[in-house]
Nucleic acid binder design. Structure first.
Length: 483
DNA sequence: ATGTCC
């Protein structure tokens, strides 16, 4: 089904569904996209979901979607929506099943030459040391007490237990710890799924990517981020595994009952939500924070094994190789933040579902070392084109509650990719581009084939032309571990 | 995304 409703072109990068399109819309919806992209965006009807989100109780500003928009559960992926932090409603569909799915970028001071032809060996070592795949279990045995600590303290737990460096915390959004986390809001079932999986990559679109800094667009900012042309980087993409998934599933069920019992009228039951000042809304928020912390601990543990893998294959320590975390961003999360809304300052909860925080210089939430240039934003494209590093700009603060895109965005459903593409073609395509690939399953590889994704260059062009972010560097893959 | 239906 395609979107045949109104989609008014505001300018070269913005399209609007006016508030009067449906009676349930409390505000307008804005989609960031170019003329080139809009046909594809209409084709999967995701604009309807952006319009539906405009019905969210307590929404402030517009319902927004980034150019990587595609069909999701309730909210579109690429969706951004803010609600008043006291009276507005929180919706699990606006965060996603994989709570705090996110991306971490690790730099090195090594060039490809320094790897001495060991790219394949290194990727094999990463594949061996970082558990990946559907239902994968971590190598670390923890019990309920440790899980409690992880849910409460996130990356801090990981660093205190030997996974990584103290300074990694400063290079992580929220320092890897949402302070409102309350493990008593997390069910036994979510715990049971979380315990064996801590320290694992998972499957789906999750991956490890070995890249080379190929292009530097802003030399000063790149230098600030520790990125130098020709050096090797590692990108880690994963989330909260079955733990976050279980939290999302259970609260969605409860909120569906809540909206029914309280006669809350929504255009789609998948938008199930509860006011932040209700017990259910507050409990979900606290549980979501736990899921976020689990994901940060997870990426922190993986960081440790990435460093160990480099140490096992190459000469020298991770420290000597300059393997610092550049930054770690969450792109499936809701955050309590202060923003200007129609001329006044307001406490809001910003849902970012397949969207990345992109704060401009000056915001105190940004790590001290980057505060004068803006927040690093990490945007994976697809396994062939690689990853962009951007920096948050003023336009994001003005228009999108400090948000930008999160990736290329799918243009083919998983099923469409499975039926239309061939695994051997994807493997050949990767080989032709000199990218060493390790993948656990052909099915998973097909679902994530480059052809299943939009053109990330076009996505980046839009968010930069719209003034939300600026380009800093482009990272080109030399090796991929596909989860 | 996900023990792709407890």
């Amino acid at each position: 089904m395609a979107w045949n409703g109104k989609l008014k072109k505001i300018d070269e990068n913005r399209w609007e569904i006016p508030k009067d399109e449906f009676p349930f819309m409390r505000t307008n919806a804005v989609i960031y996209a170019s003329e080139n992209m809009i046909g594809q965006i209409r084709s999967d009807n995701a604009p309807l979901q952006a319009a539906n989100v405009a019905s969210l109780p307590g929404i402030v500003g517009s319902s927004m979607a980034m150019p990587d928009i595609h069909w999701g559960y309730g909210f579109p992926i690429g969706g951004v929506a803010a609600v008043n932090a006291d009276s507005g409603s929180i919706s699990p569909g606006g965060i996603g099943f994989d709570i705090n799915c996110g991306v971490r970028l690790i730099k090195t001071d090594l060039t490809v030459d320094d790897l001495g032809g060991k790219v394949g060996v290194l990727v094999d070592e990463l594949y061996k040391n970082v558990p990946s795949g559907l239902g994968s279990k971590g190598l670390t045995k923890i019990g309920n007490r440790e899980l409690d600590d992880i849910l409460k303290n996130g990356s801090k737990w990981a660093v205190e237990n030997g996974y990584g460096w103290e300074r990694d915390l400063e290079a992580t959004e929220e320092k890897g710890r949402m302070k409102d986390a309350d493990p008593s809001a997390v069910s036994d079932k979510a715990r049971k799924r979380g315990i064996p999986q801590i320290g694992s990559l998972g499957s789906g679109n999750h991956f490890l990517e070995l890249d080379v800094v190929d292009d530097v667009f802003d030399k000063d900012v790149a230098k600030k981020f520790g990125l130098k042309e020709g050096t090797v980087t590692v990108t880690v993409h994963c989330g909260s595994r079955g733990c976050g998934h279980q939290i999302a599933t259970e609260y969605l069920q409860e909120m569906e009952r809540y909206i029914k019992n309280n006669n809350i009228d929504l255009p789609d039951r998948q938008l199930a939500c509860a006011p932040l000042d209700s017990k259910l809304g507050d409990d979900y928020y606290k549980a979501m924070c736990c899921g976020a912390n689990y994901a940060w601990a997870n990426r922190q543990m993986i960081t440790h094994w990435v460093r160990e893998s480099f140490e096992n294959i190459l000469e020298g320590s991770a420290e000597d190789m300059g393997m610092d975390v550049v930054y770690d961003v969450a792109h499936n999360i809701a955050k309590k933040e202060r923003h200007d809304v129609e001329g006044h300052s307001e406490n809001v909860l910003v849902h970012r579902k397949g969207a990345t925080r992109a704060f401009a210089a000056g915001r105190t939430e940004i790590a001290q070392m980057y505060r004068d240039v803006g927040q690093p934003v990490i945007i994976p494209g697809d396994m062939k084109v690689g990853t962009y590093v951007l920096v948050g700009k003023k336009g994001a603060m003005k228009e999108t509650f400090g948000s930008t895109c999160h990736g290329a965005g799918r243009k083919m459903s998983r099923n469409a990719a499975l039926s239309k593409l061939k695994a051997s073609d994807v493997k050949n395509e990767m080989r032709k581009n000199n990218i060493y690939l390790r993948s656990g399953s052909d099915e998973g590889l097909l679902e994530e084939a480059p052809a299943a994704y939009k053109d990330v260059d076009e996505v980046i062009k839009v968010v930069c032309a719209a003034g939300l972010t600026d380009k800093v560097a482009k990272l080109t893959p030399i090796g991929v571990v596909k989860g």
